[in-house]
């Protein structure tokens, strides 16, 4: 159990990097009855696999009587798809940069300099999981409309920025968990003190010691955020921005086979992001070393 964060609180949603199963775990001894276990496991797999197979098969049905990739060609060549997809990609990248700029210093500071604020920061990062997204979006519409003190929804640029802020709030829990898990495996205090003894300033400590050490954690938080923002619907629809989520809903109401193709694309992207998280963990394993 050495290389795994010792206490994983139940609030942790971060599906982020799973440390490879510790080899030290005791070998299973058959108790529950392997037959029953296989039944549960098998039923679970059937439930998880069928919708994926179903959507893939459906997406191939566009041409009558034979399987083809026509639905994909039709989706990919749709200018609307290209526009909304690239819009959402750009928004995700902006969100990642913004979120990291907010969360990384906060997570570091509460570990190094301000441990008293730690519960407060943790509480705030959990709020977006408790307050429904639609409520936050509604609050934005009322607070930042054209007749408010900060009329952000008045212009397209203002609304884009507001959307990025909204996405950053959605991403808070995931980013904070990812980075905090990364910091947990470091002995931040000792590293800081060692650096100080050697004459390092705060800038050096932050950018040359902490940052490289939590690089994997940053990457996993980033990929997770990317996959969440890309398909987000509520914020984009209520702020009336041409994002990928609303486009998918529109397709669902107006096309037959294209939605399944879109679902396959969206699933592949989510899967790709999770794969990249795993890959990042493997490529930079030193950041996961136990103390």
């Amino acid at each position: 159990m050495t290389d795994r964060p010792d206490t994983l609180e139940p609030e942790l949603v971060s599906p982020a990097p799973t440390v490879p199963a510790p080899t030290a775990v005791a070998p299973r001894r058959r108790r529950v009855g392997p037959a029953l276990s296989w039944v549960f496991f098998g039923l679970g797999m059937v439930y998880f696999a069928l919708p994926l197979i179903g959507m893939f098969e459906f997406s191939l049905r566009k041409r009558r009587g034979t399987y083809s990739f026509d639905a994909y060609t039709s989706v990919l060549s749709d200018p609307q798809f290209q526009a909304t997809f690239s819009y959402s990609v750009v928004m995700s990248l902006v969100t990642i940069v913004l979120g990291m700029a907010l969360v990384l210093p906060a997570a570091l500071w509460v570990r190094i300099r301000l441990p008293a604020m730690r519960p407060v920061v943790e509480f705030i990062t959990l709020l977006p999981l408790v307050i429904p997204v639609i409520v936050i979006a509604f609050g934005y519409l009322r607070m930042f409309n054209t007749s408010s003190f900060l009329p952000m929804t008045g212009t397209a640029t203002g609304t884009n920025i507001l959307l990025a802020f909204g996405y950053a709030t959605l991403a808070l829990p995931y980013m904070y968990r990812a980075i905090d898990n990364g910091l947990r495996t470091l002995d931040v205090q000792t590293l800081t003190e060692a650096a100080q003894i050697l004459g390092a300033g705060w800038f050096t400590i932050l950018f040359r010691i902490m940052l490289p050490n939590v690089f994997t954690a940053i990457l996993s938080g980033a990929f997770l955020t990317f996959s969440i923002v890309l398909g987000e619907y509520v914020f984009a629809a209520l702020l009336d921005r041409p994002a990928f989520g609303p486009y998918m809903i529109w397709t669902g109401g107006n096309r037959a086979y294209e939605p399944a193709a879109l679902a396959v694309i969206a699933f592949s992207i989510t899967w790709g992001c999770m794969g990249l998280i795993q890959l990042a963990g493997r490529l930079f394993p030193h950041t996961r070393a136990s103390r």
Binding site: P15, G54, M55, F58, Y233, G252, A260, L262, F267
Partner: peptide, 19 residues
């Protein structure tokens, strides 16, 4: 991890295509 994030619109499409 993937399935927990595979929610929203695409998930609905997957189930419509299946059931």
């Amino acid at each position: 991890g993937v399935a927990a994030n595979f929610a929203g619109v695409p998930l609905a499409f997957a189930f419509i295509a299946t059931l």
